[in-house]
Simulated scan of single mutants.
Amino acid sequence: MGKPAPTTYSELIALQRTAGNAAVCQLLEKPATEAGGRLVPVQRGFFDSIGNFFKGAAKAVGSAVKGIASGIGKAVGGIGKALGGAARWVFARLGDAGEWLLNLFRDLPGRLLRFGKAIADGLIGVVTFIPEAIGALIHGGIAGFASWIWAKAKSGAAWAGTLISRLFDLIGGPELAEFVLHIVSNATPLSNTERAAAQSVLGANALRWDEVRIDQGGVLGLVFKLNQGRAFTTFHSINMTAADRADLSIVVHELTHVDQYEHAGSVYIGQALGDQIAEGSHAYDYGGSAGLTTDRAAGKHYADYGRERQAQIAQDYYRDVTSGTPTVEYDPYIAELRRGEL
Rank of each mutant, 00 (worst) to 15 (best):
K3W: 10
P6A: 12
S10V: 15
A14D: 06
Q16F: 04
A19Y: 10
N21W: 07
N21K: 14
A22P: 05
V24R: 04
P31K: 07
R38F: 05
Q43E: 12
F46C: 12
D48C: 12
F54G: 00
A58H: 02
I68N: 07
G71N: 01
F91P: 02
L101F: 04
N103S: 11
D107I: 11
L113Q: 06
A120L: 04
A120D: 00
D121F: 11
E132D: 11
L137D: 03
L137H: 03
S147Y: 06
W150E: 02
L170S: 01
P174L: 12
A177G: 08
N186I: 15
T188M: 02
E194L: 11
R195Y: 07
A204M: 09
L207R: 12
L207Q: 09
R208N: 11
V212L: 03
R213L: 01
R213I: 09
D215I: 15
L222Y: 02
L226N: 10
R230F: 10
N239P: 10
D244Q: 15
D244T: 09
R245Q: 15
S249E: 14
V252W: 08
Q260P: 12
Y261H: 11
H263C: 03
Q271F: 04
Q271V: 14
A278Y: 02
E279N: 15
H282Y: 13
Y284R: 02
G288S: 12
S289W: 05
L292P: 07
A298R: 10
H301D: 03
Y302P: 05
A303V: 13
A303F: 01
D304Y: 00
D304G: 09
Y305S: 08
Q312E: 13
I313P: 01
Y318R: 02
S323F: 01
I334A: 02
G340L: 07
